[in-house]
């Protein structure tokens, strides 16, 4: 996965996430917003009116932690969630 950091400050970051769409980004945003340190999280599928020809950009703002750590934590949480969901599905169906 191609991840490019476009700009970074102490409490905010803009990251371009290559080859992904709403499927991952929207779930990731949800996962980010459920972290306590995260003040704001959103993403743009169509940056600079590109007609979605470029990769989506994720924006994250935190209160007082590294926003990249927040993305990592959110992605880890999402991975755990998806795995536990998969186990539940296999057990139940």
């Amino acid at each position: 996965m191609n991840v490019t950091i476009l700009s970074k400050e102490d409490s905010s970051v803009e990251v371009e996430i290559g080859g992904q769409d709403h499927t991952l980004l929207n779930v990731l945003k949800d996962s980010l917003l459920r972290l306590e340190d995260v003040e704001a999280a959103t993403y743009d599928m169509n940056p600079e009116q590109s007609g979605s020809k470029t990769d989506p950009i994720l924006y994250v703002e935190t209160v007082d932690s590294d926003p990249l750590d927040a993305i990592e934590e959110a992605a880890n949480n999402l991975q755990e969630d998806a795995e536990s969901f998969e186990e539940e599905v296999r057990a139940a169906l």
């Binding site: 990731l28 993305i71 992605a75 998969e86 599905v89």
Partner: peptide
């Protein structure tokens, strides 16, 4: 179950890259 696994794989990849 494959759909859930595909989400988890991508999340893992992102966490590793970050």
């Amino acid at each position: 179950s494959e759909a859930a696994l595909s989400l988890s794989e991508r999340a893992e990849e992102l966490a590793d890259t970050i």
